[in-house]
Amino acid sequence: MQLIPCPWCGPREETEFHYGGQAHVAYPQEPAALSDEEWAKYVFFRANPSGPLAERRTHSAGCRRWFNAVRDTRTHELAAVYRLDEPRPVIP
């Protein structure tokens, strides 16, 4: 069972967290101005890289705060966690 370092609480067991999909997918400023295809990209399409992926998580059985984490999809290792108001760290 993984330890996930919550930016507010420190390392906690993964069962305390919920997964929230790819990070940095902002709700469009003006949904009405988007074509069906552009809107569908926001609603349905997510990256699926082999390697680092920035994802959202929430410490649902802890502080209940959302944060972002960069996970290597090949090893499941978390390279970084950061608050929502922090920029995505550069992962070498």
């Binding site: 919920h18 929230g20 902002a26 709700y27 959202r56 929430t58 649902s60 209940r64 705060r65 959302w66 929502l84 108001d85």
Partner: peptide, 13 residues
């Protein structure tokens, strides 16, 4: 409740 908190924290802080 999760849904409300998600939007409040992630999109509408």
């Amino acid at each position: 409740l999760d849904w409300m908190e998600e939007w409040l924290q992630t999109e509408w802080p």
